[in-house]
Amino acid sequence: MMASRKSSSWANGAVGVLRKDLQLELRNKSVLGTLIVFVLNTMFLILVSAGRGDLEPRTEAALLWIVIFFTAALGLGRAFLSEKEQKTRLFLRIHTQPLMVYVGKLCYSFLTILCANVVSACIFLLLLGVEVTLPGLFILTLILGTLGLAGATTLLAAIIARTTRSGILLPVLMFPLLIPLLLAAVESTFYSFVGQSFAEGGWAASLGSLLTITSFSSVVIVASVLLFDYVWQD
């Protein structure tokens, strides 16, 4: 009885943090709108400079994920900086436990970056004329990759909110850590593009990559949960 009440109040806290962030976001639509404009611009740059339809599938997959990584680096750094700017950090620290804040922010980051990624994937596939042979695999890779990105970046966003020069620091901190995720996501996306032309079939070949992405996401999320207290408290 006690335990269930405790866990429900814990979830309430996390949902509360998420709802606060979503409401703020819906009220002025600053982050998501800017991110989508950024994605549009980057895609246009790629289209103009790399041409249409004559790219290798692996290059296409790599380009897509590099755009996604930069979008995440720009958008997710905001997660904790906004608390600093609106001076709500102390309020959150008094009224919630660190883990609630982390989970709430993780969900918020995941939703934000998922929206931006869906937009960028749609534009990318339409404008570059990429054919996706295995749409299910492509969507799964996108969702799992987004989870890994959000999981790794939420802790780093909390870290950079504590620094003085936060602007350029997030890409520097996150890119070397995310190289395993990038490699696995690119490989899996590549298989979803070329699909059945491989004798063994796209799904079987990309199983290893999908497992890598999943385990990477869980490891970074567990590590973040363990380490978040130290960043959040003074």
């Binding site: 790794a152 802790l155 780093l156 870290i159 504590r162 620094t163 003085t164 020069r165 936060s166 620091l169 901190l173 070397p176 850590l177 395993p180 995720l181 890598t212 385990s215 990477f216 490891v219 970074v220 590590a223 973040s224 380490l227 130290y230 960043v231 003074d234």
Partner: peptide, 28 residues
């Protein structure tokens, strides 16, 4: 990251967090 943190105690903690977080991804 260390150069972007001024207060020594805060720098020690945050840098240690990043160090361990990076160490967790090395097996991958």
């Amino acid at each position: 990251l260390r150069s972007a943190l001024d207060d020594p105690r805060k720098r020690a903690r945050i840098a240690a967090v990043y160090n361990l977080f990076a160490f967790a991804t090395v097996p991958f």
